[in-house]
Amino acid sequence: MGIFMILFTLLGGITLSAQSSINGTLSRKAGTIETTFLTFITGSMFLAIFILFFGQGNVLGILEAPKWQLSAAFLGTMYLLLTVMAVPKIGVIATNIAGIIGQLVIGMLIDHFGWFGSLVISFDLKRSFALLFMVIALYFIYKGNKRSSKESCA
């Protein structure tokens, strides 16, 4: 069961990178804001059907939830909009690597300070090495991208 679940999650990652390339392609003709808008609309439609059949929570609980928790929707929107903007300029892999690094760095920060009621995991030596590797990754992807764009021009 465990292995099956891991494969299933790999599929989740695959769909996410497929999403960023598809959206990048659509945005060239339809526009950035329009593409993000469409993604959200179709996503809500599918989730609405999903919830009707499988939802076990309480959608109306949104009305009583603390407002700061609801503000996360602006962050979700920002993520998608910025991704759609970046893909046509630097490509899928660079956008994803930079995005993941931003995510991990802030994730470590949240862990360290235990913000938003998360478990406190302090920033240690292992995590500083992890940070170093991320900087190396960012450097390589920048260099690798520069080289392939040079090759495609030549």
Binding site: Q69, L75, G76, M78, L82, T83, T95, G99, G102, F116
Partner: peptide, 18 residues
């Protein structure tokens, strides 16, 4: 564009925690 992508990821982390 790299900075935009980094920002996108940070937004995602805050979003996830909240």
């Amino acid at each position: 564009a790299y900075i935009l992508a980094l920002l996108a990821g940070s937004a995602l982390s805050f979003e996830g925690a909240i």
